[in-house]
Design a protein around this nucleic acid. Structure first.
Lengths: 336, 336
DNA sequence: TTTATTTACGAAACCGTTTTCGCAACCGAG
DNA sequence: CTCGGTTGCGAAAACGGTTTCGTAAATAAA
């Protein structure tokens, strides 16, 4: 069954194509009576406009992209909800693009956007991303881009982040106050700003307590969960093993808990754990997990709102619009 | 900075627009030498084709849609990964559309697709979906659609499901074997096939054990988590309260655990729990959760593969291609 | 009554590609 | 040398909308 287009509406009503188009857009040039007739037959014949025709002519796709490492992560899926809520309100569609933490994927995706597939981009960079030419390149092509959570410092555009340094500090300090002396930090990337800032906060907390950081306690985790498990086990079996762990990413929760279980280390008695996580199940874990919970939905929503401001008026300057939304430390049994 | 298009490439090389287009598509009509030159300048000038122009001309969007209730759910996020893996291979983009379990949203989304935004659709219907005119309508417009997990029985197209009835049966039987006599079933929809089939399996298991189902033990949960909590608490405080629970959806895990905690009911001593869930944290919950784990990634992948077969040759008949991929019962502490 | 203005609509260009068709130039065969 | 065939390319028509501009008729102003 062929789809109805404007031309057929025109024939049906004995009007010109341009009149139909204008009527559908409620143009002042068209009489109320004609508008009514057009609307009515459009509805009756189930007319749905071809989005590509309009996009081509107007150089506007009414799409925004969300470029993220993965979707199976509470932070990102909640952020998507925030983004979607404002996109829907604005009549935009959301294209979700996954980099799977791979830089080459990220570059390919952004390059495609130069063709005009989307009007704007919301982005959380991959863990492999250590330079940002592909991003600046896109922006200089006229596509506005707003970072959320994982940003590239050197790119001059809006960045919606959480207070990573303070959170790393707070998490570590909390462990120190709970009596941990040897605290490990599990990061995920040498280049990622969030990982580095959280690490910085960790180091600052140690420093404030006159504790010297132990290089063996600072671990870079892999993207492959299976590879992390032995690394964590090794961390927890070395002679100078930590009594506290700050994990900078949600995905590490399960391997940490499993490693402790296998090594018969009790959480929190033998080792206390705090994790950057938005897991809904944090409170019912065994034991319940102390988390740094990020304002995921709100970050997504804020980033999207900002992007739309830029889309709505070109003069809007994203550079000055960075925002930090604080995370909260939720203390639970894993550190008590 | 304006983006380069084919016309500018043509001017640059003193060739015609059509020659450029053909060269870029490696047409046999164009000499190797010319192809080389075109490719080279295209790369040099950073040419990226406008996707809308091509889509308009070819009536092919190279997009598929995934229409699901939400993304903050392990099953769906894993399924997306499966879908994306095959879409990427085929050079397609994935448009993720969320219904938020709302029928009106679902209908609006599908209607839009008639305009040609996507070439095919993968879908898991909302809990509110009780009839399917909007779906048949889309299909009869020539857009192939494959259901996964949550299907509409009456729509004649491919359906990738898991063995819901058997799984409901297995879950219930497991509880019976563990000594539960009064077992509650938590569903999410009167109309949803998965909910009904799981319920059917539950009833069959009870029947096999000569146990009469108690209407008060069969509960329809709401979409709003906050509303479910009091309902579950009420279930667990009534005089004839259950000693086992089969929860047909992942989202119910937290309220069940929390309710038990508040009511000082011990899992599994006082009440045993099995949940349809793909939660990665199932094994580290307190207590670890017995689950029916669905083959989420594989279901997504299979559904997508089938959709592409239909996209690649129109003669491919989706109707005969339904497939059932079994789930597995993973017994953990919540039922021991 | 003539002129100016408004109202309501249509013709056609345009957005950036793809594709069909036509046509030179060149080739080898007869 | 001529003729059929190939090779390599260009012109132009689509695809389905939007938008600019022109214009006839109706109305208002002079």
């Amino acid at each position: 069954m062929k789809n109805i287009n404007i031309k057929e509406l025109a024939r049906e009503l004995n009007l010109s194509v341009s009149t139909i188009s204008k009527a559908l857009h409620d143009s002042y040039e068209i009489s109320e009576e004609t508008k009514r007739r057009v609307m009515e037959t459009a509805a009756r014949l189930n007319y749905v406009p071809n989005p590509y025709a309009g996009s081509l002519r107007n150089r506007k796709s009414k799409n925004i992209a969300v470029v993220i490492p993965e979707v199976a992560d509470s932070f990102f899926s909640l952020a998507i909800n925030g983004i979607e809520s404002v996109a829907k309100e604005k009549g935009y569609h959301v294209l979700i693009c996954l980099t799977h933490e791979n830089f080459e994927n990220e570059r390919t995706i952004l390059k495609e956007f130069k063709g005009g597939r989307v009007d704007g981009v919301l982005m959380s960079v991959s863990r492999e991303t250590s330079h940002s030419d592909h991003i600046s390149d896109l922006i200089s092509n006229g596509i506005p881009l707003v970072f959320f959570d994982r940003v590239c410092e050197e790119v001059a555009t809006a960045k919606i982040t959480t207070n990573d340094l303070e959170s790393g500090y707070k998490a570590t300090k909390h462990l120190l106050q709970q009596g941990c002396d040897k605290i490990a930090f599990l990061g995920i990337s040498k280049s990622l700003s969030i990982s580095n800032k959280r690490l910085e906060g960790y180091l600052k907390a140690l420093n404030d307590h006159k504790i010297k950081a132990d290089a063996k306690h600072i671990i870079l985790c892999s993207n492959d969960v299976k590879q992390n498990y032995p690394v964590i086990k090794k961390l927890l079996t070395q002679k100078n093993k930590p009594t506290g762990i700050v994990a900078s990413v949600e995905k590490l929760t399960t391997p940490i808990y499993n490693a402790c279980m296998e090594l018969k280390l009790k959480i929190p008695q033998d080792v206390k754990v705090v994790c950057f996580s938005n897991l809904e199940t944090a409170s019912i874990l065994n034991p319940s997990l102390t988390t740094i919970t990020q304002p995921a939905f709100e970050m997504g929503k804020t980033a999207a709102t900002l992007l739309f401001k830029a889309l709505e008026k070109a003069s809007f300057d994203l550079i000055k619009e960075s925002l930090v939304i604080p995370s909260v430390l939720e203390v639970r049994s894993s550190t008590r």
